[in-house]
Structures are given as C-alpha cells and as structure tokens.
Design a protein around this nucleic acid. Structure first.
Length: 297
DNA sequence: TACAATGTTTTAAG
DNA sequence: CCTTAAAACATTGT
C-alpha cells in the first residue's frame, strides 16, 4: 500500500512516541525483514535509547535515536571526565508492499506478522508486515545517512535541468517504468504513476524520448503535492489526549476527480471523458489508463 | 487452483 | 560497463 503520502502518514502514527525511551524491543528474528541488520544487533543497539526524531524520503522512513539523552546533564564544561557524546543512531524502515505501522498499548501482545515492536513506558510501536517485502535496518552512526539520496519530487532542486540530467540515458524506457524508478521519482508507486500518466495525459508505455520532460515534471509534482495534501488535511485537530489513541489516523484517499477512485473497479470509467478504462501490464505492473484520453504508446 | 497484489533486488539479456 | 526486461521474494485473498 505505501507510497509517498502513505509513508508520511505512517511516520506520523509513531510520532506520539517522540521523546520517549525504548525500554524493550520485540522481534521475530528470523524473518526476511532483518536481511540487512540482524535483529539481535538492532535490539542491543536501540535498547534504552530515546526516540528523538523521524523523517521520510520517498518510501523510506528514518527514526533517529539519541544515545545520550539519558546521561547528559546540561553542564558539560564542568564535567570533563564525561565520555564523549556518541553519535545518533538511525533506524531505517521500509514498508514494502504490505507493511504498516500502528500504535498499541504497552502490554500489546505480539501477533503473527508483527516483526518489530518498540516498547516505551506508555506505548508499543508496531511494525507489521505479513508479506515481508519490507525491511528494517540500522545505519552506521553518521550525521546524515541520507545525504546521498536523489532529490525528492517536491524538493526545490527537482528542476527540469536536474530531471534531464538523471534521465539522459533512459530514452528507451517507458514512462511508467521511469515513474516507478525510485532513483528518479522517490515515493512514486504504482497508483501514483498511473495517476501521473492519466493527468498528463499520456500512454504509460510511451517511450521517454517521445515525451515532454517539462510537462512530466510539472504533473508529477502536482500529483505528489495533491497526495500529500490528502494526508495533511486529515486529523489536523490534535486531541491532546495522551498515550494510546487508536484510530487517530485513518487513511484518506484522493477525491473522485482522480483516476485513483476508478482504476480498480471492473468497468471503471475515466473521470474526465467517461470512456471505459483500459487495463494491462506495463513495465511488469498492472496498469490502468484511459484509451481515449491517453492515446497510444 | 492458479494468479494477482499501490515494492525492491537480483539475474538475464540486449 | 550500461540499459531494459523479467523472475524471485512471502503471504493472503479472490
């Protein structure tokens, strides 16, 4: 499920735990989710640390922990014998296709597909993923483990010049495949890619060399911004309640004027021209498009 | 039963 | 070495 906006939504779900200390960690240690970092090493690294911050980049989630939050008093010049501060630890999480985050009570019992649970005194932070395409791993303790990632679509630096440069050798690829490439459009997934193709409008199998890149850039930014707005509008009033409040975040979905609402329905119709939608495989993914608006490849 | 699923990585092929 | 296409991964639901 998770693309850009849904990943941001997932980040906010764990937000109530910022500033809290991890007092226990539960894992299913032998699942593929730990293919990068062994569960035991995550457990020992994060134990008793404080969750300080969270960010997203495309479909990635980053949670940063302060190993000094507990032992560092305000005075530092006065205590030269204190050990030097340790760098922040960064835990990255990817939700894959079926991963989700939720909050639960501190004594929440681990369920079948709950691979990773952080416990604080007040909350359980649960990562659940029945399909195990997702992953959780630790970064080496550097200041910013994400400094080399590509620009996000909504980043000011995502300019036409930039887009031309990073796609300069990709003329033979299809629009849909390009939109799904996380090195170029971080956070765009299957439904957003279809939405962008539809909004352009342009057939998803059209070759990049036949495209107007400036328009692709403009529309992809519109779709990303729109998707983010749909999650930002929701739950804006904070209820001020403490601790576990299930259901505070509910998934919100784009309006009926978007292709999104119609693309999976059998016999779905184009919200722009009302033609019947077409469906097929493009770039190895199931794809929906309007044969009337989007023309041919 | 067989296939598809809002994703990524690896392998194969051009 | 580079680009592009397809298989593999693990599990569930139709």
């Amino acid at each position: 499920m998770p693309e850009l906006a849904e990943v941001e939504l997932a980040r906010r779900i764990w937000e109530p735990a910022l500033g809290q200390r991890i007092i226990a960690i539960d894992t299913h240690p032998h699942t593929r989710v730990y293919r990068d970092t062994p569960a035991a090493s995550i457990e020992s690294s994060l134990s008793l640390q404080t969750l300080l911050a969270s960010r997203t980049h495309g479909k990635r989630l980053l949670f940063s922990f302060d190993p000094n939050a507990r032992s560092v008093p305000r005075l530092k010049k006065e205590l030269p014998s204190l050990p030097p501060p340790q760098a922040m630890l960064h835990l990255e999480l990817h939700l894959g296709m079926s991963g989700r985050l939720f909050l639960a009570a501190p004594d929440y019992p681990t369920a079948k597909h709950d691979h990773f649970i952080l416990r604080t005194r007040e909350l359980s932070l649960v990562y659940s993923d029945y399909r195990q395409f997702g992953r959780v791993f630790l970064h080496p303790p550097v200041a910013d483990p994400w400094s080399a990632l590509p620009f996000e679509v909504l980043d000011r630096r995502f300019t036409l010049t930039y887009l031309k440069r990073v796609t300069s050798r990709r003329g033979g690829t299809s629009l849909k495949a390009l939109l799904l490439d996380q090195a170029i459009f971080p956070g765009v997934g299957n439904w957003m890619a279809d939405e962008i193709c539809w909004r352009l409008p342009c057939h998803p199998a059209k070759k990049l060399r036949d495209l107007e890149l400036g328009l692709v850039r403009k529309v992809s930014r519109q779709i990303c911004r729109g998707a983010m707005r749909h999650v930002a509008d929701k739950n804006s009033p904070r209820d001020g309640s403490e601790g576990f409040s299930p259901g505070r975040y509910v998934e919100q979905v784009p309006p009926p004027s978007w292709l999104f609402q119609h693309r999976w329905k059998a016999g779905g119709h184009c919200p722009r021209c009302h033609s019947g939608l077409a469906r097929g495989t493009v770039a190895t993914r199931t794809t929906a498009w309007c044969p009337s608006c989007q023309g041919a490849a």
